[in-house]
Design a protein around this nucleic acid. Structure first.
Length: 566
RNA sequence: GCACUCGUAGCUCAGCAGGAUAGAGCGACGCCCUCCUAAGGCGUAGGCCGAAGGUUCGACUCCUUUCGAGUGCGCCA
């Protein structure tokens, strides 16, 4: 495909010596409106070197550029040189590009030979998989797909919270009040009950805390009874989580959670000791980070057991050695900003330069209308319920609008779940939000169903119009404002995918896909696509095809399906 | 107390690592199916971009201060 921006840079480079290629590239912008051009080059920076007023410089440059095959017009508008892409060329390059790449439009090989680890989801076993987990799960999955699409060797790791004092509590609670059969009938809820009860009683009886710590210590020491109980709890929890992962269509390459690293910590502690980084404090051991403006990182508790910082460090070492990652990404809430900053620093202090390749991707909090989520206080909304409810609502809408549709159930799942995922990926990660059923179940406007609907509509047009990919198209029949607008957005798509990767922000893709859908719907409403004139029909169907294809790819990168009918 | 994050229309949010007149969706009001999927399209109303300074030819965007909200800060994860 023709890179028009690059063509703009080439032109400018020839006339302007004082700026490098990259400088020019970063100066070039997209005008607020397309009547001002596709690209603009502001010349303010040149006024010193040229010793002229910006307007005059722009005028002079525009005159020099005047004729060029890739641009139909290059003119100055005050201190800007505005470039108008040759529309016919644009249409041609986009259509050719989409046809030749097909289902891989926008993919790339830039990641070849590089491994990216994405750690995400990571729920705590024996606890409900609730609405608070949706962000890491869905954002992480999208990032995983995006990196993969760009050619990286990508590894999805579910770093299960399957270790720590909480399991001491659970084991202790189970031994007191547990009943195997009751738990197996409804694992998460029953385990949660035990956990809640234990915490409640521990408020009064402080000795229970010591008991919990004792059992965790026993677990770490390999006590058979403790280990078997723990293994069983882990297994039944995973089965529960798997239901949600299936609904979301998410797969992991590894479930190596915290427990997996339980025997990999001594070497970390040894290395910290060797390098003189460990400090004793009240019987516990830590790495002092005061110099770096951070509180110390606790490595080992007074009773000799470890903390999650230690496990995270051990896990990072393990991953470096086994995957030799290019990037090691952690999709974890912003509450843990400090924790990651601390242990990344510890690894750096140990002298490992790959510390810089460890990246924390934070996201904002989800809360409920009546306050923060709290497993212990029972203030949770189960993710499974949310997804089921969304599917149900979708089914109701479908009964009204398209009751004759085949495989309604299947489509309702794709649309309902897609709606939830889409909304999750619609804004910047960092924003906090309050969960609301109303918003989650509203499918009008810029939503997942809107985009999917556009996709289905496009598909239906292609079928009705007997679209044939082999048909030659007259590019000059797609030059109206509405048509070009759509073409431009499809043209931008590959760069948007790159942006999403560079900034680890899937929502760039979400927004672009919405823009494409909007543009197409506008076109659809203003022009008849299946018309008598064969040439026109072929051209318009081709436009419909590139829209459908790009939407499908975009949704796919977000982990959302694109049904052909709805 | 210290650190970090957020603060743009009634609501929910975009605004591309400073640029040309601040944009959507929802909600409100008014239109458009004898026509390819109306989960759609078109239009109207609605904003001193939390506040004050500063840097710059130019600030919603960068810096400082300030107010408001959230999060985190040694034996939980």
């Amino acid at each position: 495909m023709i890179n028009f921006k690059e063509k703009v840079i080439e032109l400018i480079e020839k006339e302007v010596d004082s700026l490098s290629h990259d400088e020019i590239s970063s100066l070039i912008e997209i005008p607020p409106s397309y009547d001002m051009g596709d690209y603009a080059f502001p010349v303010f920076r040149l006024s010193k070197a040229f010793r002229k007023a910006p307007n005059l410089i722009a005028e002079e440059l525009a005159t020099k550029f005047a004729n060029n095959e890739n641009f139909e017009k290059i003119v100055n508008n005050g201190p800007y040189v505005n470039f108008f892409i040759n529309k016919s060329k644009l249409v041609e390059t986009v259509i050719d590009g989409v046809i030749s790449e097909g289902g891989n439009y926008g993919s790339s090989k830039i990641g070849e030979g590089k491994t990216v680890i994405v750690e995400f989801s990571s729920p705590n076993i024996a606890k409900p998989f609730h609405i608070g987990h949706i962000r890491t799960t869905v954002i992480g999955n999208a990032l995983y797909k995006i990196y993969k699409y760009l050619g990286f060797n990508t590894i999805a790791i579910n770093h299960l919270g399957d270790y720590g004092t909480q399991f001491g509590m659970l084991i202790s609670a189970y031994k007191k009040w547990g009943d195997r059969e009751v738990i197996e009938a409804d694992p998460i809820n029953e385990l949660l009950k035990l956990y809640v009860r234990f915490n409640a009683e521990a408020e009064e009886k402080v000795e229970l805390r010591d008991e919990a710590r004792y059992w965790f210590k026993e677990l770490e020491n390999g006590n058979k009874e403790a280990y078997e109980l723990w293994e069983w709890i882990r297994e039944i929890s995973l089965q529960e989580f798997d239901k949600v992962y299936k609904m979301l269509n998410i797969e992991f390459d590894s479930f190596a959670g915290e427990s997996f690293y339980s025997d990999k910590m001594p070497r970390v502690i040894d290395e910290l000791n060797e390098k003189g980084l460990m400090k004793e404090s009240d019987g516990a051991y830590l790495v002092d980070l005061e110099e770096y403006g951070m509180p110390p990182a606790l490595i080992q508790k007074r009773d000799g057991s470890t903390l999650y910082t230690t496990r995270d460090i051990a896990a990072a070492f393990y991953r470096k050695e086994n995957y030799d990652f290019y990037k090691n990404i952690y999709v974890v809430g912003s509450q843990q900003n400090l924790h990651f900053k601390q242990w990344f620093k510890v690894i750096e202090l140990m002298g490992h330069d790959w510390a810089k390749d460890c990246i924390h991707i934070p996201f904002g909090m989800v809360s409920l209308e009546d306050g923060t989520l709290s497993t212990r206080k029972g203030r949770v909304v189960s993710l499974e319920d949310v997804l089921n409810k969304a599917v149900e609502t979708t089914l109701t809408i479908m009964e009204e609008r398209n009751p004759d549709l085949e495989n309604k159930e299947e489509v309702a799942k794709q649309v309902g779940i897609g709606a939830v995922v889409f909304q999750e990926l619609f804004n910047q990660r960092i924003k906090d939000y309050v969960f609301s059923w109303d918003r989650t179940l509203s499918f009008d406007g810029e939503t997942g169903p809107y985009v999917q609907y556009t996709h289905a509509r496009a598909n239906s047009l292609l079928e009705r119009g007997n679209f044939n990919l082999e048909d030659k198209v007259n590019y000059d029949l797609l030059l109206s404002e509405d048509e070009i607008n759509v073409v431009r957005m499809v043209y931008d798509f590959p760069n948007i995918v790159l942006d999403a990767m560079e900034k680890n922000e899937p929502f760039f893709i979400t927004r672009q896909v919405v823009e494409i859908a909007k543009g197409f719907n506008k076109f659809y409403n203003s022009s008849q696509i299946i018309v008598d004139d064969e040439e026109t029909k072929k051209a318009r169907l081709m436009l419909t095809y590139i829209v459908k294809n790009t939407i499908k790819i975009g949704l796919g990168l977000l982990g959302i399906e694109a049904p052909n009918k709805m």
